[in-house]
């Protein structure tokens, strides 16, 4: 029982990352009809937004501290971050400590801008071209983005810690009446899960309850008619592309403390998130979220030792096996609309 609860919890945070990326991919596919292989790169850029902000915030200058001496007897050189000298040591240290959550604010405009630039500059010209061309050009773009990041940040992963408050683990078992230290769960993963739930909720309510969202949904259903009604649907779709990029970026920002960002993390997530989208059904937003959590949980269950002893290696391939089975038995995915991309 405790093991099952633990695996469900483990699945949730992996699942929330999958769900967020898949949500962005589906937004783009559902609105613009474009298969975006650069979406993993957007996730990666989001993570590097967190890295950049924490670097900027901890920019420091060197002063000589007369009260301390180094081993040669000279005054010790001490690095003082600008943030601490401007806002006082306590607030300054707190700002640096909270750089990852602060990066959320920083990354939204950055990702929106990147999204707009990408859509206006490149994707726009590929609406009419076959999916294969779209895959190829965004694949090229992903390589370019990844290499640019590699040029500026190097090839090694850059550890980006979460705020100190969230470093420990939460003892879930006590809450549910188990012995202590049986079900423990890192705080940051809880935060990640909560955060992604908020983002997913925000995207859905935006589409559901605003006029803008209504127009976008109408455009997803029948683009031509919406255009004929005199609505400039292209402009709204561009904004949706920006939002999708921002969702991917936010997923990346918050993922930075879980896994130190490196330049190819996007490619690693890309394949999985495509599988998630396909399982959920191309163009179905609830499907993407559902499939994300489902596959995340399945993956963590498959990595239980009891399961592994029956099917060795199942944890490595479970997602792909599920995807292949679903693709072959239910062509439109779990929640895909009938008739959308069924062949």
């Amino acid at each position: 029982m405790d093991a099952i609860i633990l695996q469900i919890l483990n699945g949730l945070d992996k699942g929330s990352a999958y769900a967020l990326i898949a949500l962005g991919l589906t937004l783009i596919f559902g609105t613009l009809g474009v298969v975006n292989f650069a979406h993993g790169a957007l996730f990666m850029i989001g993570a590097f937004c967190a890295v950049t902000l924490s670097k900027i915030l901890s920019l420091s200058y060197i002063i000589l501290d007369e009260t301390q001496t180094d081993f040669l007897g000279k005054p010790l050189k001490v690095k003082v971050p600008y943030a601490e000298s401007w806002f006082g040591p306590e607030i300054g240290a707190a700002i640096i400590d909270w750089s990852v959550p602060l990066a959320i604010l920083f990354s939204i405009p950055v990702m929106l801008l990147i999204g707009f630039a990408m859509e206006r500059g490149l994707i726009k010209h590929f609406y009419k071209r076959p999916h294969a061309d779209q895959i190829l050009v965004t694949f090229g773009l992903a390589i370019v983005m990844q290499e640019i990041i590699k040029y500026f940040y190097g090839a090694n992963p850059i550890p980006t810690p979460a705020p100190d408050v969230f470093t420990g683990s939460y003892d879930f078992g006590v809450l549910l009446g188990f012995d202590p230290n049986v079900i423990i769960y890192p705080y940051w993963r809880l935060v990640y899960f909560g955060f992604s739930a908020i983002i997913i909720g925000a995207v859905f309510s935006f589409l559901r309850f605003t006029t803008f969202g209504m127009v976008v949904r109408a455009g997803m259903a029948d683009r031509e008619t919406v255009g004929l009604l005199g609505i400039d649907i292209d402009k709204r779709f561009t904004l949706m592309f920006g939002i999708a990029a921002a969702v991917a970026g936010l997923a990346g920002v918050m993922y930075a403390p879980i896994n130190s960002p490196n330049y190819h993390m996007g490619m690693d997530f890309l394949v999985l998130s495509f599988v998630v989208v396909v399982v959920g059904g191309m163009g179905s937003l609830p499907g993407a979220v559902l499939a994300g959590f489902l596959l995340g949980t399945l993956e963590s269950f498959a990595s239980m030792n009891e399961v592994k002893s029956i099917f060795p290696g199942i944890d490595q391939i479970i997602i792909y096996v599920v995807a292949i089975l679903i693709l072959l038995t239910r062509p439109r995915g779990l929640m895909g609309r009938k008739g959308v991309m069924e062949d």
Binding site: H131, I324, M341
Partner: peptide, 18 residues
């Protein structure tokens, strides 16, 4: 179409992981 690409991708990643 794209499903074929993703299926082959999934198979290749599967063989790689295995």
């Amino acid at each position: 179409g794209i499903y074929f690409s993703i299926l082959t991708l999934a198979f290749a990643q599967m063989s790689f992981n295995l």
